[in-house]
Design a protein around this nucleic acid. Sequence first.
DNA 1: TTGAAAGCGGTACCAT
DNA 2: ATGGTACCGCTTTCAA
Lengths: 334, 334
Amino acid sequence: MNIYDIAEKCGVSIATVSRVLNNSPRVSEKTRNKILSVMKNEGYVPNAFARGLGLDSMRMIGVMCTDITDPFYANAVGNIERLFKRQNKDIVLCCTGNELADKKKSLSYMVDRRVDAVVLIGSAFKEETDNSHIRRAAESIPVIIINGYIDLPNVYCVVCDERGAVRENVAALVNEGYNKILYLYDASTYSGNEKLSGYKEGCRLCGLSAEDILSVRVAHSVKAVEEKINELIALGTEFNSVMASEDILAAAALNTLRKNGKKIPVIGFNNSAIAECTNPSLTSVDNMAEAMCETAVRLLDDMAEQKNVPSKTVISARLIERESYKKNRRGQKL
Amino acid sequence: MNIYDIAEKCGVSIATVSRVLNNSPRVSEKTRNKILSVMKNEGYVPNAFARGLGLDSMRMIGVMCTDITDPFYANAVGNIERLFKRQNKDIVLCCTGNELADKKKSLSYMVDRRVDAVVLIGSAFKEETDNSHIRRAAESIPVIIINGYIDLPNVYCVVCDERGAVRENVAALVNEGYNKILYLYDASTYSGNEKLSGYKEGCRLCGLSAEDILSVRVAHSVKAVEEKINELIALGTEFNSVMASEDILAAAALNTLRKNGKKIPVIGFNNSAIAECTNPSLTSVDNMAEAMCETAVRLLDDMAEQKNVPSKTVISARLIERESYKKNRRGQKL
DNA sequence: TTGAAAGCGGTACCAT
DNA sequence: ATGGTACCGCTTTCAA
């Protein structure tokens, strides 16, 4: 069943059928109804490949993340999918892992597949040295990066001010007397570095001395954090509050500290489901995934309308307070 | 840059270039090398839409789940993506939510998009009454259901024996004297019903009386569980162990119980990241997502090779023991 | 081993 | 408002 069959059954040419398919106004109401009813009766659906060939688009958006089981990425993918579906666009998902070679290969596959645009989720897509694959992809289609920033033509970035968020939280803690903050992190991505910088900046701005700045890198696992915390306690290292670059690190730290009878403020990052599952529940920084995704989709809309589109959009983070730390509202200052 | 350009630059016909693209053996080594090197120099990549039109396939697999932020689904999607990528197939992801109308629409979009097959993740895709959309989809492409079972032509199901797993765990608990098990669940999907049945079967097989069978439905939220547990305690309802249909319910129950000073066995379901983040960590049933996904992909491979493919494949679950409950190894019997 | 040409199923320009 | 037709870029059959 193709456009020729429909045309024949209706006694019109394929051009007219095509016009109906594309909602052209240049068809009489009568003819249109006739064609539509025949299409319905016959269960006709236009061939997506042929249409893609003619229009050079199948309304598909490539979406890449390093790991869909990471709640932050999953949430972002879900939002993006939902927003694009409104426009009848589907997403092709690619989970790349962290190997540069795999990321490059996946990205070029996306381009070869002729998706309309590609959305990279997470700062893991900004490489230290070699972003040539992204530059190349951006030569054929727009590239959107969520929570990462690379300055290249036709690459548009939407980031959350994570550095600022961490800095503010450091200030809030210190302001309440928690002047020795243990900062746990697990990756040195763009995002990871931003948060770490925020921690250090915050400490410096609050006038803390070098020995009060305690940032510790651990593996991305509950076990690793547990061991590290126990080690710090065994060594007699002092700290009176904890911040982490990820909820799972904060959760693990929280649990280990409680097991050791220590009740001190703990702040996580990403405001994931984990934050609600710890006891006490975990105060966490919301990195505004939804807002970033909405912005990403809007950027593409604006580009389609030939509007001028900013190459970088910054969104502020927000602290979601739960039991593991509540901000003291009185006398707060930066 | 298309196949004609390449043909011209090589002084051959497009047929020969096409043969090279498709690894046909009917090309001389010399010609092949010439063409390959020109392709490489020119950075030629065949047009995916044109190819799709000719071959009636763009090597895309539709994947549907109700909610990608659910860790079980995310994990399954990740596995499926990884396995298909090995075969140079990409996945089109659709998150449908739980509305039947949306599921129907998404499924028909997938078919209209001419994906090679569609994988439905989760028993939420088995409707109580109306599975006509699945039957219709299966008339054009194979439909694989992961963790759900519908008996229809060209629909292939891979399920985990969740009912059996719950039944066995009930038996283990009762065998150790935990003869009043609170069972928490949140959905009446196929999977949800299976687990609930397993609970009831287990209780019956262990000779428990009706008043010792305590299954409680709650909303899918930490808060709902908290309230329910507190309510049960307030009412003086007795139970000496807890099982749940989802880790998040078990985690919430565990936390609430500890806050009330109750240390009793708790078993979750899905073996998700949450299980490692509670304190004590949560013993949970692994529903073998990876094994199910591998089976799903293999089914499609076998179909492509015209092998006979089972319409239902059952895989056994496995208990992952953590701190919230450890099986007593001595004297265990069903 | 290679080439010519007929599809595949649409879109869109140019006439009428 | 409608029709004729070239074209999108590849696959594949049939001849040579």
